[in-house]
Design a protein around this nucleic acid. Structure first.
Lengths: 351, 351
DNA sequence: CTGAAAGCGCTTACAG
DNA sequence: CTGAAAGCGCTTACAG
């Protein structure tokens, strides 16, 4: 743990210099040179004495002082819709780890997907002088992003992408395609999609991937088979109710672009006396830790959430070095579980 | 949004002073005086000119520079077991909001309930020079806390308490009592507890509250009816399996001290062909957003998670003012749902 | 009411 | 190889 100098004060560079009888600048130089040799910073002997004492006294440099001088805070700002969304929480865990590894610290804030709040939170981050931003709640219209670009604020997107900007996401189009292939193969021909929020690329891409593949397999699916919804459980339940209330034969399978929405849909199905996995197949997305452990385990597209967060950190580092990194799209994989493991029921009556 | 000066540079105090033809210290004084009158800081006229220009140029003070001078960073460090634990994520949302309101910013880090990691993360926080710590993963043995006290690091506990230290928690003893009362009233006489991790006060208090009330109602419950477990879904499933495998009549009700563990237990029950809410009642704790929306809605003790986070911020502020605040115990309430709404089944065969 | 100075802890050219 | 100085942007007694 961090040690204090005798007086109870925190150890400073000056303390080290004084005790060693050298100039503070020498100490600083040594501590910034490669750890083995003191390449040009000081004699090998001096360097060793400096490093030994620093270790002994538990010296840790004051980051605010350093950043005042270097004009870099080693701080990253992260904006997410909600940290209580498990998906974003896990991405943030990836960010936190990866940024610590490269000497950065991260702040997170919630925007609740509200444009005013996004602005407000970004301002708070910039007021704290973060070196760069990781934006996990980008909206497809993207006016805000253009503004940030104009103002030369370094940022990358995570979780949701917007064409033209660096981003770390799951390849959601492929994810949607995989689900279509799976359900088609299981014999389903009547399906519905709980599509999420139309301003989010995750929703758009997963849905588009699904529809494209479905149609290319010869399937038919109409506009009212696609129900937009909130990403949470309540939103999924609502969408599920809507699907069952359309006065046309109910689908034999439902693809929800998010596990929580899928769980909500499972609830709606059960309220109507339907058994998930038997009467209606359900597939979710993200493979959150819950999916495998639900009473009826949920088939879900696994997306490498922590890796997406880690990748976002790599990308922002590149941006801070002045590069323009390509969007990274990480690979999804389907995990088939009880909720969609049975073949489609032979026929379906109007619900 | 933050404006830049003409040269693209960030606006500084000096810029303001220069443009107004006054001394930087005057600007600083004005900006720190109460917003209406410039009590002693400058003439009303000067004060107004300063404030107008500051607003016009979008001046925002450099926090690292200020903190270098004031020796306070307005930074709070928060340690949690896992941010991907919904309960902690919501508490953190409360912290984030409340600290922003008082001009603080918060960092979060995961300890995964590992003592070495707790130390490491605390060191990282202190290296960043946080003013104080909010610890959400305290272990009851508490050696670490004594150390922090000795080193005069300001901190408060949240979520889990340890006697003798300031903390913001749910009144978990009362929470456990309420559940015992409810299950007793519904006619249950054979019950089991999925108790969580024995190093966490949440687990200990909820279990103890339950057992005490249960016995005072005349109920009997033996040691092997209490199964310790991890707090997550997988842990709950395991514990559920263990309860069903004991070779004695299965309980008619299970109290899991955590919603996720409860969901896991529901899964285990279903695998054994049992229907939750009919064959076996299940009660969880925290009333996470999922509980109400599950296929079989889960009875759960609501704990005011966001409020607990907000309260922790209030407490740490008090500690930073040199006070010694009393532990705050927020009130739980029971929400009865389908998983425990039916009366206990009349008789139970060995499972 | 306002100015001038000192200094928080660090880093970084610049000398020598 | 090492020292000395300047300065990052701010705040805070201290004068006047």
């Amino acid at each position: 743990m961090k040690k204090k100098a005798d007086g109870g004060r925190t150890v400073t560079l000056k303390d080290l210099a004084q005790e060693l009888g050298v100039h503070p600048s020498t100490v600083s130089r040594v501590l910034h040179s490669g750890s083995d040799v003191a390449k040009g910073a000081a004699s090998a002997a001096t360097a060793e004495r400096v490093r030994d004492l620093a270790r002994k006294l538990g010296y840790s440099p004051d980051p605010q002082a350093a950043s005042l001088r270097t004009r870099r805070t080693k701080l990253l700002g992260v904006i997410v819709p909600r940290l209580s969304d498990l998906v974003l929480a896990i991405m943030y865990e990836g960010i936190d780890e990866a940024s610590a590894e490269v000497g950065y610290s991260a702040f997170v804030m919630n925007s609740r997907d509200d444009p005013d709040e996004q602005r407000r939170k970004i301002d708070l981050m910039l007021a704290r002088r973060v070196d760069g931003l990781i934006i996990g709640d980008a909206h497809l219209d993207g006016g805000l992003l253009q503004e940030l670009t104009d103002r030369k604020v370094p940022f990358v997107l995570m979780n949701r992408r917007v064409p033209g900007y660096p981003s770390a996401t799951c390849n959601d189009i492929v994810g949607g395609e995989i689900v279509a292939g799976h359900l088609w193969e299981m014999g389903h021909r009547q399906v519905a999609v709980i599509a999420g929020e139309p301003y989010a690329s995750t929703a758009i891409d997963r849905t588009a991937g699904f529809l494209d593949r479905w149609r290319s397999l010869g399937g038919t699916i109409s506009d009212d088979d696609v129900v937009w919804s909130k990403f949470d459980t309540a939103g999924g339940r609502e969408a599920g109710e809507k699907i069952l209330a359309r006065g046309k034969p109910r689908p034999t399978a439902i693809f929800a672009v998010n596990d929580f929405a899928a769980i909500g849909a499972m609830g709606a199905l059960r309220s109507h006396g339907l058994t998930v996995g038997q009467d209606v197949a359900v597939v979710g997305y993200n493979d959150t830790s819950l999916a495998a452990e639900l009473p009826i385990p949920l088939t879900s597209v696994h997306s490498p959430m922590a890796d997406i967060g880690r990748t976002a950190v790599k990308l922002i580092q590149a941006v801070l070095r002045g590069e323009k990194p390509e969007p990274a799209q990480l690979k999804p994989t389907l995990l088939i579980r009880e909720s969609s493991a049975a073949r489609a029921p032979a026929e379906v009556s109007a619900s």
